[in-house]
């Protein structure tokens, strides 16, 4: 039996299993912390989106809550000047590399970026940073879905679905730095790759990068849907 500890998040005392990551403890107790790449089941968090910063008393700088196991007596603030500044910059950086034509996007009104923007009151437009211009060809080769890389935020959830759930291995990360992409072997269109078009990846995509071509079909999972989330819907 695992021991439980008490932590204070935004002045609320919360009991949870020791060692549990702060992000999930907060979310499960209805306290929102922005996040894109976190997957609860992963033992080693990806920690790549850099949106889930919080302040912990006694720690000299904001830390990512997805990587931080809770400890007895931990006092956490999900908002502070420093946290808000980092989250805003990270979010704006992500936007600068994201196709912001929301009205044309199938995930419009069902997009994590929109939810975060609303919650943190950050405008969904290119502001401090100029958009990074590049050409991505739309991959609409699969029968029922398509992949628009101009909307991809590199959270890696589709790759996990492909590997851990579908057990295929059709997609993965390739290249480096600013050119990092989710792609197939040799950059083949999905339909020409070993992809079985099971569409598990489509359901986990938190934005409109992987989407169903027929607009009446909705993603199974609502990216904002987790216990206690009051801002969803």
């Amino acid at each position: 039996m695992s021991t439980s500890v008490t932590v204070t998040i935004d002045d609320r005392q919360i009991k949870a299993r020791a060692g549990e990551k702060l992000l999930w403890v907060a979310l499960e107790n209805g306290i929102y912390i922005p996040h894109l790449c976190a997957i609860k089941e992963e033992s080693r968090p990806n920690a790549s989106c850099r949106l889930c910063f919080v302040e912990i008393e006694g720690v000299d700088r904001p830390v990512t809550s997805c990587t931080r196991p809770i400890e007895e007596g931990m006092v956490v603030k999900t908002r502070s000047l420093r946290v808000d500044r980092l989250v805003k910059t990270a979010f704006e950086l992500i936007l600068s590399d994201h196709n912001l034509k929301c009205r044309e996007c199938p995930a419009n009104r069902n997009c994590v970026l929109q939810a975060i923007a609303k919650e943190r009151r950050i405008k969904l437009r290119y502001d401090r940073f100029k958009p990074i211009v590049r050409e991505f060809a739309l991959d609409d080769s699969p029968a029922e879905f398509a992949f628009d890389r101009s909307r991809c935020v590199l959270c890696g959830k589709c790759i996990r679905a492909d590997r851990e759930e579908a057990k295929i291995g059709a997609i993965g990360f390739a290249r480096r730095g600013i050119n990092r992409v989710v792609t197939t072997f040799k950059d083949l269109p999905l339909a020409e790759s070993i992809c079985t078009e099971c569409m598990l990846c489509v359901d986990v995509c938190p934005v409109g990068a992987l989407y169903y071509k027929k607009s009446q079909r909705q993603k199974k999972g609502n990216p904002l849907d987790y216990p206690g989330n009051k801002s969803s819907g």
């Binding site: 950086l93 590199l154 730095g177």
Partner: peptide, 14 residues
């Protein structure tokens, strides 16, 4: 940059 995290991938670019 390996391109994994937002700040390094996009921040250094800007």
């Amino acid at each position: 940059s390996c391109g994994k995290c937002t700040f390094c991938r996009l921040g250094t670019r800007h």
